[in-house]
Simulated scan of single mutants.
Amino acid sequence: MRMMAVIGSALLLAMSGFGAMSFEPKPFCAEPGRSEWLGDAESIDLGCMGPTSPDGRYTLTIDAETEETRGAVIIDTASRQSVHRFDPLISIPAAFAWAPDSLALFADDGDGSGQFSRLRLFIFESGRFKEVAGLNDSALALFKEAARCRLPDIGANIWGIQWDPDGRRLLAFIQQDHHTICPDQMATEVFGLEVSLDKPLSPRLFGKEELRQRAGTLLPQRLFED
């Protein structure tokens, strides 16, 4: 509990940037080959209009003019009066899911390969969207402790899956990536991750059985095999 409190208090909010959109996004177009790992998230390609917020007020786009496989996340009002542009750039394949109350959005940043994912979170606060800084690193620290792995360069894939109906908690899963091998068997386990939006933000790691109960129908069953 003490470690979770420290991690929660270390999560800081990064201010978003503003600016005019430099290109006209295409209508919603999902990236080909939807992944079975996405849960409720929707995958979009560069330059495409992403899912609109449930209340219809906000649109989502990945800037197509930045790089060939990466672009800035852009959250825009439907009237195009306020544009929120975020760095660092996000890499395709990328997937997004709005909270039911339209006040938060998570993103699975594919890092250009589709075999790796970083979890990113954007929340609406004080009249604008902001990205939560340090969330992925905090989740990785929890994973290292639970997996009993002390390798300094161990990596993990973290995929957002879905929001709770009240929009105050998001559910994700985390497992060791394919590039680092930890000798402890626990490092090969899959863990669930719950992130509460209550202040301070408090990520909680839990085991495979709870993950199966909460999101087993959204994920491939081989994920839960021993």
Rank of each mutant, 00 (worst) to 15 (best):
R2T: 08
M3P: 00
I7A: 04
S9E: 13
A10G: 14
L12T: 14
L12F: 09
L12M: 13
L13H: 10
A14P: 09
M15C: 14
F18Y: 13
G19M: 02
G19T: 04
S22D: 15
F23C: 07
E24K: 13
P25Y: 00
P25I: 07
K26G: 10
F28G: 06
A30L: 08
A30Q: 10
A30Y: 03
E31C: 07
G33S: 03
R34F: 11
E36P: 09
E36W: 10
G39W: 02
A41R: 03
A41G: 07
E42C: 11
S43E: 13
I44R: 06
D45A: 12
L46N: 01
G47E: 00
G47N: 02
G50R: 06
T52G: 12
T52A: 11
S53D: 02
S53H: 01
D55M: 12
D55G: 10
G56V: 15
G56K: 09
G56S: 09
G56M: 01
G56A: 06
Y58M: 05
T59D: 15
T61W: 05
I62N: 00
I62G: 03
E65M: 11
T66M: 11
T69K: 13
R70Q: 15
I74G: 00
I74P: 01
D76Y: 07
Q81R: 12
S82K: 11
S82V: 14
H84S: 05
P88L: 11
L89D: 07
I90G: 03
I90K: 08
P93D: 06
P100E: 12
S102L: 10
L103E: 06
L105N: 04
L105V: 14
A107C: 12
A107Q: 07
D111E: 15
D111K: 11
G112N: 05
G114R: 05
Q115W: 12
R120Q: 04
L121H: 00
F122I: 07
F122M: 05
E125Q: 14
S126A: 15
S126I: 15
S126L: 14
G127W: 07
K130S: 15
G134N: 05
A141S: 11
L142P: 01
L142G: 03
K144P: 01
K144T: 10
E145K: 10
E145R: 07
A146W: 07
A147G: 08
C149N: 03
P152M: 00
P152Q: 02
D153P: 02
G155F: 01
N157I: 07
N157D: 04
I158P: 00
I158A: 00
G160Y: 04
I161S: 02
Q162P: 03
Q162D: 14
W163H: 01
P165E: 00
G167L: 09
G167A: 10
L170N: 06
L171T: 06
L171V: 11
A172N: 08
Q176S: 08
D177A: 09
H178I: 10
T180A: 08
P183G: 04
D184N: 05
A187L: 04
T188S: 06
E189F: 08
V190M: 00
G192V: 01
V195N: 04
S196V: 05
S196M: 08
S196K: 03
D198V: 11
D198A: 13
D198M: 11
R204E: 12
L205T: 07
L205W: 01
R212P: 12
Q213C: 14
A215I: 13
G216F: 02
T217S: 10
L218A: 00
P220M: 03
L223P: 06
L223V: 06
D226E: 14
D226R: 12
